[in-house]
Computed example of a mutant assay.
Amino acid sequence: MHRKFSLLLAASLSYFGLFSAHANETLTLAATPVPHAEILEFIKPRLAKEGVDLQVKVFTDYVQPSTQVNEKHLDGNFFLHQPYLNEFKKGHKNDIQVPIAKVHVEPFAAYSAKHKKLADLPSGATVAIPNDPSNSGRALLLLEKQGLLKLKDPTNISATKKDIVANPKKLKFRELEAATLPRVLDQVDLALINTNYALEAKLNPVQDSLFIEDARSPYANLLVAREDNKDSPAFKKLAAALNSPEVKKFIEEKYKGAVVPAF
């Protein structure tokens, strides 16, 4: 009887030991709805098979996802690019965000509800651009490439309106929170909109924009972890999944050029 009990106990311990070895590790990630959360939802089943329970928390702004990672309410995020992260770190000395992998580029584009082509843009036109430093600089650089203005240094990704040295069309600028730009499209002549917000507003960057960045853009969207968990097995599995051939195919087929793989 004692021997049977010992065998049962040993079997039970082996079972629970095996269960623990395969128990899921949870990763909670912040993402904006499109395309970031969609891509994460796509790889969820693969990660589950690898023992990672991926929880996706959707945000519609850029500040809260970074803040909550720094406060350790979240394990990481997937929405920002390196220039944005650099600017965010300047104003947040406690920033502990670490880039893990480049995933995709969302070519920045300009849209208009009033004009069908760039040549129609009138003198004194009102142009809406994002108000965060990295994306406002990105907008100004794109405007310069179209010949609409001239900057002191056309390689400065942190350029501001103060760096404009020539404005032949006398453009007037409205700097607004990035998420609000699609909603003011009918109030301005031109709006430069981040692709994630454009897609949410049912705008196709390839078909609906007046002009768009090319695929050589340095603004690749990043998978970001905290300093204390960047080397965890779960994050390594997540990074591998995001840089997989399956995700590349998913991005190319679903977004058709509006989002471009960066790996």
Rank of each mutant, 00 (worst) to 15 (best):
M1L: 13
H2C: 04
K4R: 06
F5N: 00
F5H: 05
S6N: 07
L9C: 04
A11Y: 03
S12H: 05
S14Q: 01
S14V: 10
Y15A: 15
F16M: 00
F16S: 08
F19L: 14
E25S: 11
T28N: 06
A31N: 01
V34I: 15
V34H: 08
P35S: 08
E38I: 13
E41V: 02
E41G: 11
F42S: 00
F42H: 11
K44L: 00
K44R: 15
K44E: 12
A48Y: 13
G51C: 08
L54C: 11
V56Q: 05
V56Y: 10
Y62R: 03
V63Q: 09
Q64P: 01
T67V: 13
L74Q: 05
L74N: 04
N77G: 12
F78N: 04
F78R: 02
L80T: 09
H81A: 04
N86L: 14
E87Q: 15
F88V: 08
K89A: 14
K90W: 07
G91I: 00
D95K: 09
V98G: 03
V98H: 06
I100C: 06
I100F: 01
V103D: 06
V105R: 08
V105A: 02
A110D: 09
A110P: 12
A113N: 14
A119V: 05
L121F: 07
A125L: 09
T126P: 04
V127Q: 04
A128P: 05
A128E: 10
D132A: 08
P133A: 11
G137K: 07
A139I: 10
L140Q: 10
L140R: 08
L140G: 12
L142C: 04
Q146Y: 10
G147W: 13
L148Y: 05
L148M: 02
L149N: 07
K150W: 02
K152L: 12
P154E: 09
N156V: 01
I157G: 00
S158A: 15
A159S: 15
K161H: 06
K162W: 00
A166T: 07
L171S: 07
L171N: 06
F173G: 08
T180P: 04
R183W: 02
D186G: 02
V188L: 06
A191G: 11
A191K: 10
A191E: 10
Y197S: 00
Y197D: 12
Y197G: 00
E200M: 15
N204S: 12
V206S: 00
A215R: 07
R216Q: 14
V224R: 02
R226H: 10
N229C: 05
N229K: 08
K230W: 03
K230C: 07
K230N: 07
P233G: 05
F235N: 08
A239L: 04
A241W: 05
S244I: 11
K256S: 01
G257P: 09
A258C: 00
V260Y: 02
V260F: 03
